[in-house]
Design a binder for these strands. Structure first.
Length: 678
DNA sequence: GAGCACTGC
């Protein structure tokens, strides 16, 4: 619940009586199409009321008769909870009764629930227990244009389910013009179907386009391309400030560094630049900020001041700021990609899509007519911006997805009906990894019990294997903690401006000679014992309180899964252990990590850099790792990312070479020759 | 001595 109250602060302060929403005009036609066709595609901008109103229309029209539920999926937790609150409020009921929501760690539904909001990832998990999703009469997939892996998988599943449940109604909602693609997807016969029978062509669905509720927005382009979009963005901000009417400004940049620089530059110039620049109030917004810092952007600017928010893509869909009249769009976004050949993830700035550009512009017209300044030419908008960025499924490590599909009984994952099929290199790389982890057998079938259990655990496959190896290495309690801590994704340590040194020394207090995983274990153990799970302990030790409490929840959930597998967790705390015991415990933990992460092994070279077993890529210990500037021989690591011209590994632990051969003899048989040389 | 866009179970 504590988590929830923070998230809830993101609710935009708008509350219009539902009848005034433009969607009211479509009430009858929406119900008619949904009644008549199995699939309805709804195009509507944010604020059209589709998410809040359509479920209510359906409920009143009797789609919840005979105890069935209307399910609405969202790509994000915050959206699922806030929308549920809004709808419950409009219907005058308590959330959790007729209207409820369900997200990881929070199931606010009851037997009375008829309209249920949930994340798409969670609905896929429900399909593990109820493959036909038979509790639902209607499923609405909201924000489908974002094309997350789970949205794509869910759409594929729904298409399959529809064949066995023709009465199920599917609504796909999208903010962009990709509607045709969604409809074509549901209309096309899958390979299985065509080989079965040539049924007559039914008309599968219709597209309904809702009018938006945003105000008109003027789009302006640069006459000639900008040399440096950060400089150009700052100049545009001052131009707006001196020449345009009142209203706050939202500037889209790509990352933390650019944003901090821009905020500083505007702040300095506001001080030195004389009266006309003195009343600008620059603010940063990116995911790495603490929740308190993020809250600042919702405050009203001081009297006579104009607010300028410099933001990453987080303001494109996840966070809505009211009162924005001007948008400045640099035209770029940082995109993650995955190279299946090297297994290395990259994070690089790429041009945004036309869909993104229009979404960004739309942020200007929420309260009155606005303007959008694009820091590129109209020609390059037309010629060089793609219609949409490649969907996530075509640029990610697919091992987790494959594991999930297999657990759902979809054995032929290559021929699964994807909205956009993933490249075959990505598929084979993921299949190879799962095979080497023992999750798949030589016929690519999920193994029992290992593969099935790995699919059920809510962690990456390599960590799932580590967890399931821990019992026999007598370190399950510790690995549970490590799994929970590493799944926080680097947000464990925390510092305000200028406290970097203090944070580093805090971290050193928890440091374990063996590496980062044991250091995380020490920090967690101290938090729950000495720190009694209190916020104060976190502040004193530069730990992120929100992350630490999340680690407690994740650990508890993982423990419940293991207990369901009849794997008992011995939690007797190791407080009185002798130094010799501690050393041998640490060795068990390192052996166990090797059982899951053997494919992420590397050896330190005399120059202090690392090479993986193939020896190809030069890798550096990330400066945030304890192994930075320390000596090691063989190590395993959790993550490898390429940024700029350097490749970094993070979450590193020392291991012995011999353990690699024990953990994965087959994997190392092929490459051991080269391992000798490394 | 560098830097992490954003989500989810």
């Amino acid at each position: 619940m504590a988590e929830f109250s923070l998230d809830a602060s993101f609710i935009p302060a708008l509350h219009k009586p539902p009848a005034l929403l433009p969607i009211a005009k479509y009430h009858d036609s929406l119900l008619y199409v949904i009644e008549t066709y199995p699939v309805t595609i709804v195009i509507g901008q944010t604020g059209s009321g589709k998410t809040t109103q359509i479920p209510q229309y359906l409920e009143k029209a009797g789609w919840c008769a005979d105890g069935k539920i209307i399910g609405i999926t969202q790509p994000r937790r915050v959206a699922a909870t806030t929308v549920a609150l809004r709808v419950a409020d409009e219907l005058g009921c308590e959330v959790g009764k007729e209207v409820g929501y369900s997200i990881r760690f929070e199931d606010v539904t009851s037997s009375a629930t008829r309209i249920k909001f949930l994340t798409d990832g969670l609905l896929i998990r429900e399909a593990l227990v109820d493959p036909l999703l038979s509790r639902y009469s209607v499923i609405m997939v909201d924000e489908a244009h974002e094309r997350s892996i789970s949205t794509d998988v869910l759409l594929g599943l729904l298409k399959k389910i529809r064949r066995k449940r023709p009465e199920l109604r599917i609504i796909v909602s999208s903010a962009t013009l990709q509607a045709e693609d969604f409809l074509k997807f549901f209309a096309s016969k899958s390979e299985e179907q065509t080989s079965l029978a040539k049924g007559e062509d039914e008309e599968v669905g219709k597209i309904i386009s809702l009018e938006g509720r945003t105000y008109p927005i003027d789009i302006l382009y640069l006459e000639s391309p900008a040399e440096n979009y950060v400089d150009s963005a700052i100049a545009t901000v001052f131009q707006i400030h001196t020449q345009e009417a009142d209203g706050d400004i939202l500037v889209f940049l790509t990352g933390r560094e650019e944003i901090d620089n821009a905020v500083q530059a505007v702040a300095e110039r506001s001080v030195q630049g004389g009266e006309q620049f003195s009343n600008l109030q620059p603010l940063p917004l990116y995911a790495g900020l603490s929740s308190e810092e993020q809250m600042c952007i919702f405050d009203k600017p001081a009297e006579g001041k104009r607010k300028v928010v410099f933001s990453t893509n987080i303001a494109e869909a996840s966070v809505t700021i009211d009162g924005i009249v001007y948008v400045v769009d640099c035209g770029f976004v940082k995109l993650r990609a995955y190279n299946p050949r090297t297994g290395i993830e990259t994070l690089t700035a790429a041009p945004i899509s036309k869909a993104s550009a229009s979404q960004r512009a739309g942020r200007a017209g929420r309260t009155k007519p606005g303007k959008c300044f694009r820091l590129y030419t109209e020609q390059s908008y037309k010629d060089s911006l793609p219609e949409a960025n490649p969907p996530e499924i075509q640029r990610s490590n697919l091992a987790p997805m494959i594991l999930q599909l297999k657990a759902l009984g979809i054995d032929n994952v290559v021929r699964f009906d994807y909205l956009s099929p993933p490249p075959s290199e990505l598929m084979s790389k993921a299949l190879e990894l799962l095979y080497s982890l023992g999750a798949l057998d030589m016929y690519a079938k999920l193994t029992k019990p290992l593969g099935f259990r790995m699919a059920e655990l809510a962690v990456e496959p390599m960590m799932a294997k580590t967890l399931l190896s821990a019992k026999s290495l007598n370190c399950l309690s510790e690995i549970l903690t490590i799994a929970a801590m590493t799944s926080l994704g680097g947000s464990v340590w925390f510092h305000h401006d200028g406290e970097q040194k203090a944070m580093e020394s805090s971290r050193r207090r928890f440091a374990a000679e063996e590496g980062d995983h044991l250091t995380l274990l020490n920090a967690y153990t101290a938090f729950v014992t000495k720190g009694r799970k209190e916020a104060r302990f976190c502040h004193e030790n530069h730990l992120n309180y929100k992350s630490m409490t999340r680690a407690v929840s994740i650990r508890a959930q993982l423990k419940r899964y293991l207990e369901r597998f009849n794997i008992e967790v011995d939690e007797s705390l190791a407080a009185h252990r002798s130094e010799i015991d501690a050393k041998s415990k640490a060795e068990q933990i390192r052996r166990c990590l090797t059982a899951g992460y053997f494919a992420h092994a590397a050896r330190m070279q005399p120059d202090g850099t690392f090479r993986n077993v193939e020896g190809g890529t030069v890798m550096h210990a990330h400066p945030s790792s304890l192994m930075f500037n320390r000596k090691a021989d063989w190590v395993i690591f959790q993550e490898v990312t390429e940024t700029g011209d350097k490749t970094f590994i993070r979450d590193i632990t020392k291991i012995e070479k011999a353990w690699l051969l024990e953990a994965a003899p087959e994997f190392y048989k092929v490459s051991s020759g080269r391992a000798e040389q490394a």
